[in-house]
Write a protein that binds this DNA or RNA. Structure first.
Lengths: 233, 233
DNA sequence: CAGTGGTCTAGACCACCTA
DNA sequence: AGGTGGTCTAGACCACTGG
């Protein structure tokens, strides 16, 4: 593991163990450098990581301080990767409605840089949190990259399989969001009424080499939809 | 201006001038180093910035490539700062409904680390985009930090005033989002119907030293609410 | 003005991609 | 194998904060 990543983890753990609160002052840079036997740059990089993650903030001339947010149960929009870790420990499950190989819609093809003649895996799922519907998810995977999928994989995490089973490296993603009203079919799946609000997130996931491999359209149950971002300076 | 910031700007301009598209390969690191007469670390930092901004992506062993997103008119959620630059060039205006000094609600007090006995500036505005309502915004400013506001300031940008006029430094922010139904009053201001969807964003803005100075609650017109995030690796 | 974090450099070595 | 970006180091110097 990378040294700066390792250090970042240990500093985060340091804060966690002691249950330090917002504004608590942490040991100064020099002290961490000595503790980890690392260079100043490496520590700076580790701290930068934690800063972007919203764990600390640094004030030049003053010190390093703990940063916390107060609210629980919000889904982080900045922690990349298929399904978010903020809901770990929450009872999540999912039901697969459809899974097959087909031709993509024009919309999906365009977002995946494919033609409507290329093959994609299509997956439609409903996700639950504590027995309540969380979202309805439709995904299109470029079949020439994600060469195989089955029900078992799709019931767990496709991303884990892509990384572990296929040995691919997920790089970055574009995420587009908007709000609208549910149509009858969506309302049915989510256990809501037609015309109720919906929060829609369309995501395109790319490999590290820039190839898009997954286009997903997720319709959230507005009652369960709470998100947050900790923005940096 | 910082050297790495300057370099990042120039590289971005390089891409813009030439109208380079997604996947276009840029000159290699060494070349930029020579061109800017800077160290490798400085260039790495500049490129990292552009990577986080979603302008490029880097592939080890391969090169540096242009990254673009396809959709226009979406508001970026990661570009910090009061009102977003993605809407520059769009015809924005705002109408001030209320502006006074008062005691905060319990909710506002809690988010600003104040008591309900402390003074805050309260601002209520409607914002328009091309004559259409974009959002309804209620803001609470800690009066011991933002010591003075008037209608003129509030009609323009409070953030510019806080930075320029008061010489304060904005550091970071927490942003919480959820979806719900409009009540009658909100619907009235936005020109929509009671029960229509709403997208609510609550933001807490902090100075670089960690003091919260602004709590804002923004209710978006769902027809105009389109957001995006370009997430990094 | 002492203490603290931020920028920048020069260079060694490593990990990954392409061919 | 050759080329490319990523990590890490050691150290100089700078910019800001707070007593």
């Amino acid at each position: 593991m990378l040294k700066y990543q390792q250090i970042a983890d240990e500093i985060e753990q340091y804060i966690e163990e002691r249950g330090l609160q917002q504004g608590h002052k942490l040991p100064v840079l020099e002290e961490w450098i000595a503790r980890f036997d690392a260079s100043k740059s490496t520590l700076t990089k580790a701290l930068e990581l934690l800063e972007r993650k919203g764990v600390i903030f640094q004030v030049r001339g003053s010190g390093i301080f703990v940063r916390r947010h107060k609210r629980k149960g919000y889904i982080s929009l900045t922690s990349n990767q298929g399904f978010k870790k903020d809901l770990e420990g929450f009872k999540l499950s999912s039901k697969v409605l459809e899974l097959d190989v087909r031709k993509p819609t024009r919309e999906a093809a365009s977002n995946l840089n494919l033609t409507v003649e290329d093959d994609v895996y299509y997956v439609k799922r409903v996700r639950y949190i504590y027995e309540q519907t969380l979202c309805l998810e439709e995904s299109y995977f470029n079949k020439s990259i994600v060469t195989y999928l089955n029900r078992e994989i799709v019931e767990e995490s496709v991303f884990e399989y892509v990384k572990g089973g296929l040995g691919l490296k997920v790089g970055f993603s574009d995420q587009y969001m908007h709000v609208d009203k549910l149509n009858a079919e969506e309302a049915g799946h989510l256990g809501l009424q037609k015309g109720d609000p919906k929060f829609v997130m369309e995501s395109i996931f790319y490999l590290t080499n820039g190839q898009p491999f997954d286009f997903s359209k997720v319709t959230y149950n507005y009652v369960q939809s709470q998100f947050f971002i900790q923005a940096g300076g």
